[in-house]
């Protein structure tokens, strides 16, 4: 068994069969794990016909509301993360301060913590029996089981995406251009809009796309905090799960296919972006305003 492999290594060139075997395996995995399930989503969604599909996914008020909730929650979370990500990347890339390294590793925390734990954590903080529970109730502020809770959870879970994209770019660019702008008399805002933003725009956009994709699909943390009220605190992933449990497979897959379409759109946006960036690197002038 080991004999041919060792010979393959010593020859410095892999035999052709190995190359094709590996490529074949990769294609097989992609087809079995990605393409077939993806097609399955659409075929089950359409199994009860076009009319049923439109009825379940685009007319049913609870499904429409779930779409609206997904839009609201992900757009607000992404906006918060744009501000947070830029502020953090700026602080970390431009300044030295105590606790800087710790801060950078803290940003990755949401990647490591299970979303369910995130949901429970917010529940223990803001729930009726939680740490701030009685104060919030006195002030009449609802966080858990309503929109703010869903936004909070989604923002937490997607926190690293934009910051992680921006930090290396801002570090690589360095402060020189910004310093030059200030020396030439630009105000802080002018420097930010005319120098910093154009430099980081691709990384920022890339981060926004990844962040949006993740925010739309978030399930774990949101399911803990949602309370599962139909037509009120249900986002699309929660709606899919619920319809599936109600034995409404065409309905579940109809909503799932819309969610998948949104995801595919972000994927296409990402691919297009990569294409543009490559093109603009080849022709440096194209990068100008």
């Amino acid at each position: 068994m080991t004999e041919p492999a060792r010979r393959g290594f010593s020859r410095s060139r892999e035999p052709a069969w190995l190359k094709w075997l590996l490529i074949g395996i990769v294609y097989l995995i992609v087809v079995v794990l990605i393409i077939v399930p993806l097609l399955q989503v659409f075929s089950i969604a359409l199994s009860a016909g076009w009319n049923a599909f439109v009825q379940k996914a685009l007319v049913d008020p609870d499904s429409l509301h779930a779409m609206w909730m997904t839009f609201v929650v992900s757009s607000i979370s992404v906006t918060i993360n744009i501000f947070f990500g830029m502020a953090l990347a700026w602080a970390v890339a431009r300044f030295q301060f105590p606790g800087r390294t710790l801060l950078i590793s803290m940003v990755d925390l949401p990647f490591a913590i299970s979303p369910v734990a995130v949901g429970l954590m917010f529940m223990l903080l803001f729930g009726r029996q939680g740490f701030f529970g009685s104060t919030l109730e006195e002030w009449g502020i609802e966080i858990v089981f309503s929109t703010p809770g869903l936004i909070l959870a989604t923002t937490f879970v997607t926190l690293p995406f934009i910051a992680r994209e921006l930090i290396p770019v801002m570090e690589a660019i360095g402060p020189d251009e910004e310093l030059a702008a200030i020396t030439l008399g630009a105000s802080g805002w002018q420097m930010f809009w005319l120098v910093t933003i154009p430099n980081i725009r691709w990384a920022l956009l890339y981060g926004v796309i990844l962040c949006t994709a993740r925010a739309m699909g978030e399930f774990g943390a949101v399911s803990v905090l949602s309370g599962k009220i139909a037509g009120s605190t249900e986002t699309m992933p929660l709606r899919v799960d619920k319809l599936f449990h109600e034995h409404d497979e065409p309905g579940a897959f109809a909503v799932a296919s819309i969610l998948t379409l949104f995801a595919l759109m972000t994927l296409i946006a990402k691919a297009a972006l990569e294409h543009w960036v490559l093109a603009s690197i080849k022709k440096p002038d194209a990068n100008e305003l």
């Binding site: 609201v72 929109t147 933003i197 154009p198």
Partner: peptide, 22 residues
Amino acid sequence: MTFRGLAALMTLTAIGMSLATS
């Protein structure tokens, strides 16, 4: 698609936010 695009995006989400709360 530069900072103007970004500004437009933010305005959109702000509108979304106010609509959502109302």
